[in-house]
Amino acid sequence: MNEAEHDILISRVVDGAASREDWAALERAGAKEPALWRDVAMSLRDHARLGQAVAAATACAERVHATGAGHGHESMPFSHAVVMSRTRRAAAWGGWAAAAAIALAMMGRGTLPAGGEGDGPMVAGLSQFTPGQLWSAYVQNGVAEGSVIAEVPDREVVDVEQLPDGGGLIVIYKRAVIERARVENPQLMRMSVDELGRPVPVPVAPTRDESVRTPSKPTI
């Protein structure tokens, strides 16, 4: 039996696909060449380790969506997709503190719209819609008018409570939206810490798209 045939037999054992004939051939070969069994053991161990490593390296795939329906992602520029990706990653790595550290706070004399202001009067008729419908309308209309880039696909679970009757769970989670705003006379600040470890805003120059695409320094 040559090396290529050995490889195939060992590989079938690793895959759990070796037939009775394969095992018989392997036993015959192993009787003449005991080192073959060491190769089998190593291959099994390598396969398990490689499988775990590749699974870990590709797990991020579960966070990447080809979402289009209703959220306008079809026309989302790559830089926006990367921003979303990095914001998610920062939140995953270090929680909201890390996410806040890479986010630029828009402060000063800007005209950044704040939640609750300039949103218009509450219309009584809205009560006929569910919160989900209103949220969806906000995202879709925001995308259409340009104030919303996209909804962040992942939702961060904050807390989970078991229902007393065992009939399910209460899940508390955050959802996030990437928004775009025009700021007049902006002063962009980045959160940092002073020598005593206290959080302080530090002025920074606005960055351009190209810097957003630089992989090592995520900046919004």
């Binding site: 991020c60 969506h65 989302m76 997709a81 990706s85």
Partner: peptide
């Protein structure tokens, strides 16, 4: 390169 960034590009090409 980050796999996740490249996946975003592939997803956009798919769409």
């Amino acid at each position: 390169a980050e796999v996740e960034d490249l996946l975003q590009e592939v997803a956009i090409s798919l769409v």
